[in-house]
Design a protein around this nucleic acid. Structure first.
Lengths: 341, 341
DNA sequence: TTGTAGGCGTTATCAC
DNA sequence: GTGATAACGCCTACAA
């Protein structure tokens, strides 16, 4: 917004309404009691002049910015876009604006963006996962910016966590495939570097297999970025093994969709030749052929709950610091019991 | 950010560096010449103190907020999420923050959000399409906020447009299907109310058919929200017609995917029984079976170009006000020539 | 090259 | 219930 001498300010509204700036401010903020007649005049004057308050001045004087920040890995993954959609919708209802930043899964980039958000006066920041640079969290604490981890259930001492137990989710997947009778298993995981969610899912999956007596050295785990091509390439590698798996757990529906695509291309039948399981329950999970068995992650709800948390008072927050959401197993056509041979 | 007496301010940095606030400001803004020794001392002091500038005070004093707003219909549609991803990435490189708002396709909601963005001091605003409330644009003009339309090629007198000709895109789709020999055609369009993009695609499609002598009253056009279920339901309705179409153009890949899903469920073969064409070239277009023939919309690029526009100086912008991007036809397996009977 | 001083638009603290 | 008045933290002439 360019400065402009004709741009009406609060003082102009006051003049037109025949009162002091203080009264206008009171009306605008709905705070203390103001005479009804005066209130009407102020509202009317503001309307006529097309007055729009200056948020910067407001923030400066009141130390309340009504700004919240979010740093997510990317918006190109529906799971995060949906979370942000829910977050924004809820914040918007309360007149709070959301600044969004993507870190491309890089926690150093995340730090830089956190700094910028602090500078902009963000009152709270939503982060993804629980793996962050110590200096990032130190900065937020020092500047008294509330922060929330999402997609995880492990909060640190100062922040909150809204999400689920990725390790348990991985176990659930493992159990499901084991119960189907599969013993030759493999996993296409997301990149686990600096990514507690991907790591948790993998560890939980392997743990469940080990608990059931599966030899872990027989379980191939490949890692790939959350892209269709990665899923494709990893599935190709898995099926080229001397003893290919009969069931593959993928760390994301995107990877699973890529795996399905590979199978379709080379004539491998899913689920007859191999069962494929995804994670997230994205829209695509219902569009592939066969449709994907997967674990549903409540992204939209997570965004809404994160919004509720940051909108709450510090006192209310105490009861909201740990919020674990349920993960639902969605069984569709991409998995089946291991046939007896 | 809560106020705090121990929170270092610019003046504290000045004291520690043994210089005046003005010098600190100059160093921070990299403006005028400052003695190297002093510069070093300032940077060092800021570092030690963990100084973070107050964006509100900066914005208030300099009337430059380094804030840009975007109002999009939803983040649950990959096409917008991707555009925002590109937009944010580019803005971030220049230290500009992005506030994002979703309008849920409602131009009255859009107006409210524009007001809030103006209040926050957004210097520019990215909008989708060219259909907006007159008062929305009037507000932006009055407050001297630059605005950009995306996904369209029709700018108004003050704004810029970065996108493509939806009508021509619709024609392209029509021509493609006609050239394949189809004459019994139908369309599953997006909701056209207040949506120039959906309307343009539909009108262009019908225009091309009419130009080629197709009786328009024989062409069924259904409208549905951009959801899988809508595509499914509309396709169901189309195939129940006395003379079902042999080719269906969908206003979005989402709708097309829903259409495909319906066909798969009831055993209608695509493309043998009916050709289905999408729009957008989303990731899902390569994941369905058969894969979707579609028109590629350069969402990511649009976001980047929109960012370049708002980052440009007013003078540079003059050459960037209309930017038409190419739409590419992507032929895959969901369409085929009409077999001779 | 550096410092001083004034004010950006608003809200909080007082008196009245 | 209302009005002066003084900041909030920073930038930017202008002066030195």
């Amino acid at each position: 917004m360019q400065p402009d001498s004709t741009d009406p300010k609060l003082i102009d509204v006051a003049r037109m309404a025949g009162c002091s700036p203080a009264t206008v401010s009171r009306v605008l903020n709905g705070n203390s009691a103001v005479n009804d007649a005066a209130r009407i005049r102020v509202i009317h004057a503001a309307q006529i002049l097309g007055y729009v308050p200056n948020g910067s001045a407001r923030a400066l004087r009141s130390t309340k910015s009504r700004l919240v920040g979010a740093i997510i890995p990317t918006l190109d993954h529906a799971i995060y876009a949906t979370m942000v959609d829910g977050l924004q919708a809820r914040l918007s209802e309360k007149g709070v604006s959301l600044i969004i930043n993507t870190s491309t899964y890089d926690i150093d980039v995340e730090y830089e963006q956190a700094k910028l958000l602090v500078e902009r006066g963000a009152e709270s920041i939503i982060l993804v996962g629980s793996t962050h640079r110590p200096k990032t969290l130190a900065l937020l604490r020092q500047k008294r910016v509330a922060y929330v981890f999402t997609y995880t259930n492990s909060a640190d001492s100062d922040g909150a966590a809204i999400g689920f137990d990725n390790e348990r989710a991985g176990q659930t997947a493992g159990r499901f495939l084991l119960d189907l009778g599969h013993t030759r298993l493999a996993m296409i995981a997301g990149v686990t570097l600096d990514n507690d969610r991907a790591r948790g899912r993998r560890d939980g999956f392997l743990k469940e297999l080990a608990n059931s007596g599966v030899e872990l050295k027989s379980v191939t785990v490949l890692e790939g970025a959350y892209k269709v091509e990665s899923g494709y390439a990893c599935m190709e590698a898995l099926m080229a093994l001397p003893k290919p798996p009969t069931a593959v757990f993928c760390g994301s529906d995107i990877l699973a969709a890529g795996a399905l695509k590979f199978c379709r291309g080379v004539g491998i039948m899913v689920p007859d030749d191999v069962s494929v399981m995804g994670f997230d329950n994205l829209e695509i999970a219902e569009l592939t052929a066969p449709e994907l068995t997967t674990l549903e992650v409540p992204s939209k709800e997570m965004g809404r709950i994160a919004a509720d948390y940051v909108l709450a008072t510090p006192l209310q927050r105490l009861h909201m610091r740990q919020r674990e959401l349920a993960i639902r197993l969605v069984v569709r056509g991409s998995t089946r019991p291991l046939p007896r041979r």
